[in-house]
């Protein structure tokens, strides 16, 4: 069971991409396939970001260690889907018109928040290896990786602004991310005041 955790999570993370490929191969992407692909990739990246953010709170709340073992995997896949999302937007949607993309990023907070999220995730993906952890020293590495909280925030608002009116689903995801952050804050405060020992 334990040995299946990482390969199982890896396989699960591949499913959204395989599903999209199946839809594409059977021309089931609908009337606006470009929009569908961008939306699906972005949504997958967002869900993986939320799952990555859930690993530590699950350990804090329930004492589970298995989420921590797949946290790096989830984070890496989140960045992988975020890259595909951005690439589809830049290459297919915008036709690699860099002026149009720059305008879009600077003028519209919806796109700005999306780009900000990707930029926040970039150094985290690069330094997600054990080697980088050693090179930076664990304290510095940990401090850098707090950027993921920022990414959680910008991604939430990017997702919210995707639709003309706020959707129940999006607001629920934002609430979930808030709860996940709150669990850490409460744990940190209690740890600092010496109520609980850090695991």
């Amino acid at each position: 069971m334990k040995r299946l955790l990482v390969p199982g999570a890896f396989a699960a993370c591949c499913v959204p991409l395989l599903w999209l490929a199946a839809l594409a191969l059977t021309s089931n992407l609908g009337v606006n396939p470009v929009e569908e692909v961008i939306d699906d990739l972005g949504y997958t990246a967002f869900v993986l970001l939320a799952l990555t953010l859930a690993c530590t709170p699950l350990q804090i709340l329930f004492g589970w260690n298995w989420p921590i073992r797949i946290r790096k995997l989830l984070g890496d896949f989140c960045f992988f889907y975020a890259c595909l999302h951005l690439l589809t937007y830049a290459v297919v949607d915008q036709g690699l018109d860099f002026k149009a993309i720059a305008d879009d990023v600077l003028k519209h907070k919806f796109i700005f928040l999306g780009m900000a999220t990707w930029l926040a995730l970039l150094p985290l993906a690069v330094t997600s290896t054990r080697g980088w952890q050693r090179r930076l020293g664990f304290r510095r590495w940990k401090r850098l990786h707090r950027l993921v909280y920022l990414a959680g925030g910008t991604a939430s608002f990017h997702f919210l602004l995707r639709f003309k009116t706020p959707r129940v689903e999006t607001v629920a995801w934002m609430a979930a991310i808030c709860v996940l952050l709150l669990v850490r804050v409460v744990a940190a405060v209690r740890r600092r005041s010496g109520v609980v020992q850090s695991p």
Binding site: V34, V92, K107, H108
Partner: peptide, 19 residues
């Protein structure tokens, strides 16, 4: 004149790939 969240300079004709 842009929409607050996106540009209106180009559009995707449904059925076409590029704008």
């Amino acid at each position: 004149v842009d929409h607050p969240r996106w540009s209106q300079a180009r559009e995707r004709r449904i059925g076409e790939l590029l704008r």
